[in-house]
């Protein structure tokens, strides 16, 4: 059965280098500082990757495979909710492209093959702008936003 799909494309310009942007996405110690999550993998084609929330319980929220890697310019991963991991139809795809632009970089995140009307489509459409804005702030000022949910009461 073919699902009806939708896609989102997000772009942000960051005063940084492709290497730093790529590292911020793929290195857990960096990602947790602005994403509130870690992306854990050895980042070789065909390897698994996991999106782990940085709190005490450390739940794995998203899983998938590494589909393409060309550091520091391109990374393609498949993406599904951890509870849906067994269902091939639940997988969507995320492409990160990091290109030099004037004195910094242009980061494009395309999330496609998302099922129309799904909870995942709704969730990521709200989530990506916040994550990318926080990444930009982290790399340019040293401080991202708290997206871990640790300090909800603050």
């Amino acid at each position: 059965m073919t699902k009806q799909t939708t896609r989102f494309v997000y772009v942000t310009y960051i005063a940084s280098t492709p290497e730093k942007v790529f590292a911020a996405i793929t290195q857990p110690a960096l990602a947790r500082q602005y994403w509130g999550h870690e992306n854990v993998s050895d980042w070789t084609v065909g390897a698994d990757w996991q999106h782990v929330r940085d709190n005490d319980a450390r739940p794995v929220e998203i899983v998938g495979k590494v589909l393409e890697v060309s550091a520091p310019h391109r990374l393609v991963i498949s993406w599904a909710g951890a509870s849906q991991a067994a269902n091939p139809d639940s997988y969507s795809r995320v492409t990160f492209e990091v290109e030099p632009h004037e004195n910094g970089v242009r980061l494009t995140v395309s999330h496609d093959e998302l099922e129309v009307g799904s909870g995942m489509a709704a969730g990521v459409s709200k989530g990506w702008p916040l994550v990318l804005s926080s990444l930009k702030s982290y790399l340019e000022t040293g401080t991202g936003f708290d997206l871990s949910g640790r300090n909800k009461a603050a």
Binding site: T108, S110, W128, L132, K136
Partner: peptide, 22 residues
């Protein structure tokens, strides 16, 4: 932001700058 698909150019809303302003 725009993405080419064959001869067509598709337009996507990019709310990231709005979050920077937020």
């Amino acid at each position: 932001t725009t993405v080419r698909r064959g001869r067509e150019k598709l337009h996507f809303i990019n709310p990231v700058p709005l979050h920077d302003i937020y």
